[in-house]
């Protein structure tokens, strides 16, 4: 591996920028994501930062089963993110549709629309579980051979 690639990889793992997108969740996972960023859990100590635009983001944190109206928007947001990009499905709904599986306006989970790198189950996923999922994703990136 060349020195330039090493630096790129190091900076990618040490400062992943995240975009949080609610894909029709009940807000429970969303407040737990915000709780994970606030002093008690403080995800920022892993270099994680929440960004407002998909064009700055490396990781897309999705919560909620994908609703009919949000489906196209989710695809567009995913397309706007620069490569390499990773998607984390937070909560049971995002993983599989959860309690809303079978509702007329709901897809069954994020992976029915866009590819997902990590799944964090729980209704809602606890902040500790979210941090664990993010750290595991970062660890898997570290081992990956480019």
């Amino acid at each position: 591996m060349r020195i330039k690639d090493k630096i790129v990889k190091w900076s990618r793992i040490k400062s992943p920028w995240m975009l949080h997108f609610n894909t029709g969740a009940c807000n429970a996972c969303d407040i737990e994501i915000v709780a994970a960023l606030t002093p008690r859990y403080d995800m920022e100590r892993f270099g994680v930062m929440l960004k407002g635009t998909p064009r700055h983001a490396d990781i897309l944190l999705c919560s909620g089963p994908v609703t009919g109206q949000i489906k196209d928007r989710l695809k567009r947001i995913y397309d706007q993110m620069p490569q390499p990009k990773f998607v984390i499905a937070v909560g049971s709904c995002a993983c599989s549709g959860g309690v809303f599986n079978g509702c007329y306006n709901v897809e069954s989970g994020i992976d029915s629309v866009i590819p997902v790198s990590a799944y964090i189950p729980g209704c809602p996923a606890a902040p500790t579980a979210i941090i664990d999922g993010v750290v595991k994703l970062l660890a898997s990136l570290e081992q990956r051979e480019e």
């Binding site: 609703t67 109206q69 949000i70 306006n105 709901v106």
Partner: peptide, 9 residues
């Protein structure tokens, strides 16, 4: 955007 169809479910 958040309509999931809970009343019907």
């Amino acid at each position: 955007y958040n309509h999931r169809g809970i009343e019907k479910a």
